[in-house]
Computed example of a mutant assay.
Amino acid sequence: MFDTLPPGRSGRGAVAGFAILMAICGAPLHPAFAAADAAKGEIIAKRWCAACHVTAPDQTTANTEAPSFASIAARTTSAASLKAFLTDPHPRMPNMSLTTDEIADIVAYLLSQRRP
Results as ranks from 00 to 15, higher is better:
25 C>S: 12
109 Y>E: 03
72 I>P: 09
31 P>F: 15
52 C>T: 06
108 A>S: 08
50 A>R: 06
84 A>F: 02
106 I>K: 00
82 L>S: 00
52 C>S: 10
105 D>R: 00
83 K>C: 09
58 D>S: 12
16 A>I: 07
28 P>K: 11
43 I>Q: 11
113 Q>T: 02
70 A>R: 04
76 T>A: 14
42 E>V: 12
42 E>N: 06
115 R>P: 09
60 T>W: 13
52 C>G: 07
61 T>Y: 11
41 G>H: 01
75 R>T: 02
116 P>L: 10
85 F>S: 05
45 A>E: 04
18 F>H: 11
100 T>K: 11
94 P>V: 06
35 A>E: 15
46 K>P: 04
32 A>R: 13
51 A>C: 12
1 M>R: 10
25 C>W: 13
103 I>T: 02
47 R>A: 04
104 A>I: 13
12 R>F: 09
38 A>G: 07
102 E>M: 02
111 L>S: 05
86 L>M: 08
85 F>P: 05
43 I>M: 10
109 Y>M: 03
5 L>K: 03
42 E>Q: 13
22 M>R: 15
19 A>N: 14
105 D>P: 06
86 L>E: 02
69 F>Y: 04
84 A>R: 00
32 A>L: 15
60 T>F: 13
25 C>E: 08
7 P>Y: 03
3 D>S: 07
15 V>N: 04
90 H>V: 10
89 P>T: 06
64 T>S: 14
89 P>R: 01
64 T>C: 11
81 S>T: 12
53 H>S: 02
110 L>T: 01
110 L>K: 00
44 I>E: 01
46 K>H: 05
67 P>Q: 05
97 S>C: 06
19 A>T: 12
18 F>R: 14
83 K>Y: 08
14 A>H: 06
39 A>W: 14
36 A>M: 14
49 C>R: 00
83 K>I: 11
81 S>C: 05
56 A>I: 13
27 A>K: 15
38 A>H: 02
78 S>M: 11
101 D>I: 12
